[in-house]
Design a protein around this nucleic acid. Structure first.
Length: 670
DNA sequence: GATCCTCGAGTTCG
DNA sequence: CTCGAGGATC
């Protein structure tokens, strides 16, 4: 082997070890072995400058597994569990177990897998004497002082046990403590943590136990090492741990067959959000210790247990670039371009990064290995970097000072989060405005989506909203990827949109601060575009919810000749400029009641439910507050349902909601 | 001035 | 859905 090959080999091994340590959290080599490889590489590079490289692990800043803490050799290996990603794999596991044992039925015990860090706690004569992280399973880091400040770790056992005793479990951070921690860090200007596990892991590796204490870490025990003979099952071991004073997770269930265990897994995959700590799966163990002994351990994994992994919500990937797009209001939106990564069955390539402050606040740099989560809200988020994997070549992102589309100046008013392109006729803004004009909440022009908006603006066919109404089918059909039929349909849809009314038109115009609600109020109070455009700020502010900012924005809009001309052109094209009198709300039982809709309803869309309520004089809003009368919760309702429970707002399921609607429509005479 | 509430804007994949 | 910011209210 040439020296060059040796260097390459060492670099590969070290990179791989880093990856396993920091990303997979499943180290394959010990710290000592790592240090040895690193030292060898350093020596070669020192003596042979021609073999040095910027990409060498020796150039990594502070990435080596820390040797700040003394190594502790575990008395018995800290095992990892083999993973199962499907119920079929669980059944296969069960089959192997029963075959090896020659039993028709084997009892299991199911425990939640807490997403934290495994640690070992040693006691002598009932007193806590030493604690260590798992490390590579054989040798860990001694973190006794840090474990001592965790309230769940008993310093004295409730029974004065003679001699040595060891328990193992998981150090973790509660979600509520994690959020409080990140809020505090934000106030202090420190970068947020990506997830509770990382925060817990960092917390345990503090040199000053006082810093560990401030993280408010928690602990659950789940393994009793070398149990005495009268403890014959894992179930009994957990009972024993609890009796000795260890916190033991209450969500444990014996399963007389694998099917019962599968039911437990499915139940908790569904209910995982109810807990104040993250779980990433379920550990299924053969309950009887004599069976465990007979099954034994291969390599690192015991044959008597398996970890059922929930569908992932989180993955790590490379942040390859940050692109900047321009929104309808001119906002510059940074987007993460990610190396494709699968999370929970779908492949993520992009994610929004919101604004410059979000990127800086989470210490995200171009080239970073980042953690991407896709939680209940489906939309993926980049939550933070894995700093340990930095090479030093990562670039800090800066918002461009010129619009990436039109080159105009970018402005970010003092104290505002978003940077904006100052050019009102920036092509990117035109495309987005057209798309918004045609969107469902506005003029609702079917067939006019993002692709077509882009084509129409790029081709110079549409320069203003009014140009839409002059389009003819032959002209449209000449565009790429638009057949005759679709062209005719589109012309028809555009014509239909003329009669949408003032509210929808106002929404479509995209005046700053004027969305659906405000537009509806303005249309209700002013009735016509003419009256609205003539109103002064004082007059405008007499309307509900219109303050100085919104009034000024409206005045500014109508003061500009460009906008007045655009409206005149729309009027000339036959677009409705008035609000036809919607029937005044009937005196139903629901009049004035405030509803919040959440989740998916089976019998109607959310929009339909909303109009049904409005037709009865009820009001709908998007956030739950003390003033909310009812929350209607469909399937997969999320945080709003949670909030409704906290505030004691009555929650209706779909059936109760239907019932209420029917009642209100045909009031029973008293 | 503080606090609660509401509204608007942007958002991924298939 | 979540964030940021304006409006209303005490």
């Amino acid at each position: 082997m040439t020296l060059h090959d040796r260097v390459e080999r060492l670099r590969e091994q070290l990179d791989d070890a880093n990856y396993r340590y920091y990303v997979l959290d499943a180290p394959t080599i010990s710290d000592a072995a790592y240090d040895k490889l690193l030292r060898e590489l350093q020596e070669i590079e020192e003596q042979h400058p021609e073999l040095r490289s910027e990409l060498s692990p020796t150039r990594r800043i502070g990435a080596a597994p820390s040797s700040r803490f003394a190594p502790v050799e575990h008395r018995a290996s800290m095992l990892s569990l083999a993973n199962a990603f499907s119920t079929d794999e669980l059944r296969a596991f069960d089959e192997r177990v029963r075959k090896m044992l020659g039993e028709a039925q084997v009892g299991y015990i199911c425990e939640l897998k807490i997403d934290g860090l495994a640690v070992a706690l040693r006691y002598r004569d009932g007193a806590f004497v030493q604690g260590a992280t798992r490390g590579d399973g054989r040798v860990g880091e001694e973190v006794t002082g840090n474990l001592r400040v965790i309230p769940g770790v008993p310093l004295r056992l409730r029974e004065r046990l003679r001699g040595d005793f060891e328990a193992r479990g998981e150090v973790y951070l509660r979600k509520s403590d994690f959020h409080a921690l990140n809020q505090r860090r934000e106030r202090e200007g420190a970068a947020r943590f990506a997830n509770p596990r990382n925060a817990a892991s960092g917390g345990l590796r503090q040199l000053d136990p006082e810093l560990t204490r401030e993280r408010h870490l928690s602990f659950f025990a789940y393994t009793l090492v070398d149990p005495s003979p009268e403890i014959a099952t894992q179930h009994a071991a957990l009972e024993r741990l609890r009796a000795l004073g260890f916190p033991v997770n209450p969500n444990v269930r014996p399963a007389e067959s694998i099917e019962h265990a599968i039911a437990f897994c499915e139940e908790w995959e569904r209910r995982r959000d109810e807990l104040d700590y993250e779980i990433d799966g379920v550990a299924i163990k053969v309950d009887r210790f004599d069976f465990q002994d007979r099954l034994g351990t291969v390599a690192r994994d015991p044959r008597w247990a398996v970890a059922f992994k929930f569908k992932a919500r989180e993955a790590t990937t490379k942040l390859e670039a940050i692109t900047v797009s321009v929104g309808r209001t001119g906002t510059l939106n940074p987007n993460a371009v990610l190396a494709p990564v699968e999370i929970g069955g779908i492949t993520i390539r992009n994610a929004t990064l919101h604004n410059e402050a979000y990127i800086a606040g989470n210490d995200i740099r171009i080239g970073d290995t980042v953690i991407v989560v896709r939680a209940g809200d489906v939309i993926p988020r980049v939550v933070g970097p894995i700093r340990e994997l930095r090479s030093g070549k990562e670039k800090i992102f800066h918002m461009p000072t010129k619009c990436p589309v039109c080159g105009a100046d970018v402005d970010r008013p003092e104290g505002e989060a978003m940077a904006r392109c100052t050019n009102a006729s920036c092509p990117a803004q035109l495309v987005e405005r057209l798309r918004h004009y045609a969107s469902r909440g506005a003029m609702d022009i079917e067939g006019l989506g993002d692709v077509l908006s882009e084509q129409l603006v790029a081709g110079g066919v549409v320069k203003s909203f009014a140009d839409l109404y002059a389009l003819d089918a032959t002209r449209l059909a000449s565009l790429e990827r638009l057949g005759e039929k679709s062209a005719t349909n589109l012309v028809q849809a555009i014509a239909v949109s003329k009669a949408r009314g003032l509210t929808r038109l106002l929404v479509g115009l995209g005046i700053r601060y004027v969305g659906e609600q405000t537009a509806a109020i303005l249309a209700r109070d002013f009735r016509t575009m003419e009256a609205l455009s003539a109103a002064d700020e004082e007059h405008l502010q007499r309307s509900e919810g219109i303050g100085p900012e919104v009034a000024a924005s409206l005045r500014l809009f109508f003061a500009q000749k460009r906008n007045r001309d655009a409206i005149a052109a729309l009027a000339a094209a036959g677009v409705e400029m008035e609000e036809r009198g919607a029937a005044p709300a009937p005196d139903s039982a629901l009049k004035g009641k405030r509803f919040v809709l959440t989740g998916t309803l089976a019998s109607m869309t959310r929009d339909e439910a909303k109009s049904a309520l409005e037709a009865l004089g009820a009001r709908t809003s998007d956030s739950v507050s003390g003033k909310t009368d009812f929350v209607v919760a469909g399937e997969e309702a999320g945080s709003k349902l949670q909030r409704a429970r906290e505030l004691n707002v009555p929650v209706l399921d779909e059936a109760a909601f239907q019932h209420m609607l029917t009642e209100a429509r045909s009031p029973t005479p008293q």
